[in-house]
């Protein structure tokens, strides 16, 4: 009664002497159909539009100034020179400082690392408390926090200046670290709260029955299980804080300026002759850290920005 045997009486004989096309197998699809031309054509044009600025940036940074003055921004360099990069990194001037972007780079590192660690530490514990140890009023504070994420920063800038001045941190890197931790809190707390809420409640209950307390459960059960969300949070914070301009310009002094602020000052300074190749090298250098994070993290970056998009 096996199927393969019973219905063998198909029309193989008729199929052999076909005179019209007898469709069989996969529907023939031409690679060059009108649909594919439209589809891939559009995608390639759009891809070119998105890649063009990056290409121009790189090409310009590798040319000498005479070549830039004579040539065309899209043409590849006739003579590759790395001098603009060296100059951008170590001798470009902002105001009185002439030690290049390296100062801003190290400032940004000294801002980003502690800000990322502090903001994630606070927000993860916070999210955990909100998800698993709900106390009266917790949700009210949380809603205020989330609504606060939509308030334009401009409204809160000045009160924070006063607070920082009172505690003696205005203009210092530590002050900026605190500011970043405050403004990272809404989105990170939301991220962690949702993640911890999605973990099985039984796990938490079992640990409590076993006698583990607030910190015991967090450190020994929740943390080891939440590596992915920490990676997402790190990606979100590293790119966000590195790219910040407004807080840097408000809360730091020229010698503690982060990289973005220093870059803007180098490129948009009105003194001296414009060195476009140095400017573009400096621009790439500033964009390099988030770009590397982006290309390494791949899909996780998408998850991170989807979660962090609210931050705007």
């Amino acid at each position: 009664m096996n199927m393969a045997n019973t219905t063998a009486q198909t029309s193989t004989a008729a199929g052999a002497r076909q005179d019209i096309i007898d469709p069989c197998g996969p529907k023939p699809r031409r690679m060059i159909s009108r649909r594919n031309i439209f589809l891939y054509g559009t995608l390639f044009v759009m891809a070119a539009y998105y890649l063009l600025p990056l290409y121009v940036m790189v090409v310009t940074s590798l040319k000498g100034m005479p070549e830039i003055r004579l040539g065309n921004i899209f043409s590849p360099p006739l003579e590759i020179t790395f001098e603009p990069w060296v100059k951008a990194w170590s001798t470009a001037c902002t105001g009185l400082n002439c030690d290049g972007l390296s100062r801003g780079f190290w400032n940004s590192v000294r801002i980003t690392v502690p800000s990322v660690l502090l903001s994630i530490a606070i927000a993860s514990v916070n999210g955990y408390a909100l998800a698993n140890w709900r106390f009266k009023g917790a949700d009210t504070f949380f809603i205020i926090l989330i609504v606060g994420a939509f308030i334009p920063y401009q409204v809160m800038i000045y009160p924070i200046v006063i607070i920082l001045r009172e505690i003696g941190l205005y203009g210092s890197l530590s002050g900026l670290v605190i500011v970043h931790s405050i403004f990272g809190m809404p989105i990170l707390t939301l991220l962690f709260r949702n993640y911890f809420s999605s973990m099985p409640e039984e796990l938490f209950r079992a640990a409590r029955v076993d006698g583990a307390g607030f910190w015991g459960i967090f450190l020994r059960i929740m943390l080891p299980m939440s590596l992915p969300i920490f990676v997402v949070a790190i990606i979100l914070q590293v790119t966000g804080i590195w790219n910040d301009f407004l807080f840097g310009v408000v809360y730091t002094r020229p010698d503690t300026y982060p990289m973005t602020v220093q870059l803007n000052n180098i490129v948009n300074s009105v003194q001296g002759v414009k060195e476009y190749n140095v400017n573009m090298a400096a621009t790439i250098l500033t964009g390099l850290v988030p770009l590397i994070v982006y290309f390494i993290s791949g899909k996780l970056f998408v998850r991170g920005i989807a979660a962090g998009a609210v931050k705007g």
């Binding site: 490129v267 400017n279 290309f295 970056f301």
Partner: peptide
């Protein structure tokens, strides 16, 4: 690949974006 290309500018700061387009 296409998605990576369309999304990479989002990783850049507005300062970098602004300076590149100022140049272009």
């Amino acid at each position: 690949t296409f998605r990576t290309i369309f999304l990479y500018p989002f990783a850049l700061s507005f300062i970098v974006t602004g300076l590149v387009w100022q140049w272009l």
